[in-house]
Design a protein around this nucleic acid. Sequence first.
DNA 1: CCAAAAGTGTTAATGCTACACCCATGG
DNA 2: CCATGGGTGTAGCATTAACACTTTTGG
Lengths: 244, 244
Amino acid sequence: MPESHPAPACFPVTVDVVALTVVDDVLNVLLVTRLIEPFRGRLALPGGFVLPGEDLVTAAIRELAEETGVEQVPGHLEQLGSYGPRGRDPRGDVLTVAHLLLAPNFPVLSAGSDAEHAAWYPVGQVLDGELELAFDHGRMLADAVERAKSKLEYSPLGAAFCGDEFTVAQLRTVYEAVWGTRLDPRNFHRKATGTPGFLEDTGRMTTGETGRPAALFRLAAAARPAAGQPIRAVLNPPLMRPRD
Amino acid sequence: MPESHPAPACFPVTVDVVALTVVDDVLNVLLVTRLIEPFRGRLALPGGFVLPGEDLVTAAIRELAEETGVEQVPGHLEQLGSYGPRGRDPRGDVLTVAHLLLAPNFPVLSAGSDAEHAAWYPVGQVLDGELELAFDHGRMLADAVERAKSKLEYSPLGAAFCGDEFTVAQLRTVYEAVWGTRLDPRNFHRKATGTPGFLEDTGRMTTGETGRPAALFRLAAAARPAAGQPIRAVLNPPLMRPRD
DNA sequence: CCAAAAGTGTTAATGCTACACCCATGG
DNA sequence: CCATGGGTGTAGCATTAACACTTTTGG
């Protein structure tokens, strides 16, 4: 750590947020259209400079709020990793700390204003190269998706994509969207409801949908993230995605 | 990302390295004794300021070399996470990016010189509170150990603690040291040698040891880390540590 | 009644745990 | 021969994968 080094050089530091959600059974990412150079007109992850006296999470939440209007963090936020500082911004060295947000499909305040236009885009279109992102945001997105995929296997974070109460089928579509696979509804139901400390029956049911009504669940107390505490590996043995 | 924000404030950025190894069946961490304030005389992780024009990994490798004398990275190095910038250095806000190094027990150039004294210390003594580290390095170590524990479950990185060639028993003691558990040698042998794409028989055997000679293995080509590429999840289904 | 989705039962395959047991070396 | 660790076989248990089947709603 801090030693007797020459010039404790300073670096501009930014935070970026990879906000993922599931829209119509498809994994989406929150992107903004850049209004300024560099990469003007290009899609990018929301983010911006860390201000003096600010912490990383604080900055991430603030930037997210500035571009989406959400007041509280609408889901699960965690650090993804740091990138740089070299070779990622044409204007010079910038260190950025990427964050991962798993959230239900929240409305973004878009268009109309003079702010950058924020909207949900299917992750597949970006990873396939159909849409190209500014800076090294494409790599961040890829890393984020990989992280999300593996988190679903052993943690209860799939529920972060759902609201407070959800059906097993809704939770299953989350897994299917993130993993890009189909899962057997019956086996998934057994695993989800049979895992101790994962789901909690609310006693209430859905209504008005086609087919038989489904039971509504919420995250069990043991699986709910206690502020700042590490996420418990509730699914043990893990719920594994099919490989290859 | 970079927007039209007020003053793109700068932060001093450091890198820290949590170097783990296994010495005599016990997980150890590489620590230095601080020669300057703050925390003078206290144990700390090796690390230091990122220099202008430097990248994170470059800085981590350089700092490691300066304090241990190793020329090449002696094992597997990956980013652990970022901490700060607030409330972790009494002198002011400093952002640090912690790195995790899993390596065989390499010799550290210690003592004698005027440099900080570097040596291996049992991880248990630190986590138990017997030894207290400078800054927030205790938390970093805890995070690093947790990361290492979970990596062993599905990745071939346990082998990073061994040399190029090793026996199944040596690999097993790594797992036992990191997880702090005992594993059945026979079942471990089956799982390790039976997992496709994990181990590769060299055809050679150990000699001179007590008991029956053991076959020497190396990491299979498929499991060897291709520079900069993500580590393959070779152990599928994972080799799971006993819970509770 | 029919379609659609929720949820339960059942069976075969797979993988793990816990051992008994044999093999190969040094002393 | 014996102690020590390397390595194989195998039975029982737990979990998963695949799919038949019943339940409960809306149209």
